[in-house]
Structures are given as C-alpha cells and as structure tokens.
C-alpha cells in the first residue's frame, strides 16, 4: 500500500486522514494538522526537537511513520496548556529561565512530561539521563534541570 487512512487522537481530538505511507508522524503533525509546535531539527533522531508522546511514551516523530500512529493517542506541546492555564512544566520553564531561543523547548517539554509521568519526584541525575536525547544549544541545560524539579514540586495537574 502507498496510502492509508488512519485514525489518531491528537491532544484529545480525533482525526481521520488518508496519508502517504512515506509521511513521517512529524510531517503529519506539522503539514497535515498544522500543529507546528513540534519542530524539525535533524530528521535523524539526533536532536529531540520533534519529540512527541505516543500513547504516553516519548518518541522522535521524525523516525516514525504517520501510519504507525494509527489508533494511537498523540500528545504534543500544543496540548499542554488547558483552558488558558499553563501546565506546571510550562510555568516552571518560564520561572526558572529554561527557555532561550525556544526551538528545543517543545520537544524538551514533551520529554519532561514523560519523565514526570514516570518519576514524579525526579533527581537531577534522572532528569539528565531521561532527557539525554534532547539537545539544547542555548541554555547549557542547568536551568532546564531546575525547571523540571520546580515543576515536580508544583501541584500536580488534574
């Protein structure tokens, strides 16, 4: 098959689309759904800018076919803030100064979300390990570590 109709849920909304089998999940999100928050940095799994959650797990959306997401729940940076309120991670990133150019930020937030789902009270070491696939060229990472710890101390979101 060269095209396929898929059903996916993205940030809680259901989509049904026919896509080429050679379309990556990243291209699907950015070009089909116009969710451009997820970034393309390398297309080779090396930078983490394209990280999204597929059924709760972080993956490089540049290395996954859109058709492989059929039936899955996708979560992207656009899904973090709800009803006009920032997610604790977003707030913490701002407060701790963990954002500079912001290009790595969406992927970083997704990896951080997966991390907090796994380790609600992570150590700095765990953060560095679980986020090792997200490259940031601006911040030097330290404030990102602090932001995630800060978020873990904030009230858990509902």
């Amino acid at each position: 098959m060269k095209t396929l109709t898929i059903q996916v849920t993205v940030n809680g909304e259901a989509f049904c689309k026919t896509v080429g089998v050679n379309m990556t999940l990243l291209e699907f999100l950015r070009e089909e759904l116009h969710l451009t928050g997820t970034k393309l940095g390398c297309n080779e799994g090396e930078c983490g800018a394209c990280t999204v959650l597929v059924d709760g797990k972080p993956v490089n959306s540049c290395l996954m076919l859109a058709v492989e997401a059929d039936g899955a729940e996708i979560f992207t940076v656009e899904g973090l803030a709800k009803d006009g309120t920032l997610h604790p991670l977003q707030e913490a990133f701002i407060e701790a100064g963990a954002v500079q150019c912001g290009f790595c930020t969406p992927g970083m937030l997704m990896s951080a979300k997966a991390l907090l789902d796994k380790y609600p009270k992570p150590t700095a070491q765990q953060i560095r390990k679980e986020l090792e696939g997200n490259i940031c060229r601006c911040t030097g990472y330290d404030r990102i570590v602090k932001a995630i710890i800060l978020a873990s101390e904030m009230n858990k979101e509902g």
């Binding site: 451009t36 970034k39 656009e78 973090l80 920032l86 990133f93 701002i94 954002v99 930020t105």
Partner: peptide, 21 residues
C-alpha cells in the same frame, strides 16, 4: 524578569522559519 517571549515559546506558538507556509 521573566522573558517576554517565553509564553509563546513554551506553548509552541512561536513562528520560526519553517513554520511559515
């Protein structure tokens, strides 16, 4: 002070080069 461009950036709304269509 917190960066003025931060909210746009953490919500994925900032439009970078490739976000222009």
């Amino acid at each position: 002070v917190a960066r003025k461009d931060a909210i746009e950036k953490v919500t994925g709304q900032t439009k970078f080069g490739a976000d222009i269509d």
